[in-house]
Amino acid sequence: MARLFLSLLSGAIFGLGLAISGMTDTTKVQGWLDVFGHWDPTLAFVMGGAILPMAVAWQVSERMFHPVLGGAFPERPKREVGPNIVIGSVLFGMGWALAGLCPGPALASLSWGGVGGAVFLLAMLAGMLAAPPIRARIDRLTLKRSSMDIRALTPDYAVSPQIDPSDLAAIKAAGFTTIIDNRPDGEIPDSLQAERMRLAAEALGLTFVSNPVTPGMFTDQVIETQRKAVENSSGPVFAYCASGNRSSCVWALMNAGAKPLEELVGAPARFGYNLTPLVPMIEARARR
């Protein structure tokens, strides 16, 4: 009950502040944006007046264990600025200029804003309803250009440097169905360990195989496990280690004799993996 009352009170003071500040008058907002016409600086005073107490409030919140009514304070905002923030803010700014209203004043002036104000609010609600699919689309388009690097040795087998659980959606979107982790857990922080990856991958419907390779130790068991994982996969396989080098070596060894030596060394070389030291081992396996 106290939470509801504080929400109501906070909303009420907010609405009153908007009305007093003049922000419910669209000419004030448009005047602030009208740098080439009759510029009106009022909005800067409103922003300044609002930021001052809030700057203190954030400091105070750092010294409190939890909010007065329980729960937790909001987490520190992430440092990264994604494309959604920039694209969204540009669209918002355009609409803000057109009508001179943003969401707060649109609500505060609802009771006296007439038909125009109500129509604005309805259109805004429709826009909010339309936003999630648009956001998903932007996410998909930008994920493919993320730092992740898919290096296809064949159309059905790609290698990559260490990935993060958040990369898995893009890997799935690129058509892979099996993920092979060739990196021993001892090399990596908790957040990237095989079990964490397995949970994230299986949640997306991907098959996950942990096949750790200690550098230089290409045992028969490692090669067999990799071969089985590839054979059992319903689609293209994505293998990763620290750099992608071990995943490439295991691939070359498991295909020894089945593919020409030039391809086994040449395909990884396109991505900078030098498998020449492995040639005697590949040739020995091919003779078996």
Binding site: L98, A99, P103, V119, M124, A130
Partner: peptide
């Protein structure tokens, strides 16, 4: 007004 509302709605949520 409608164009403005749609832009504000989509933009602020993105």
């Amino acid at each position: 007004i409608i164009a403005a509302g749609l832009l504000v709605g989509v933009g602020t949520r993105l």
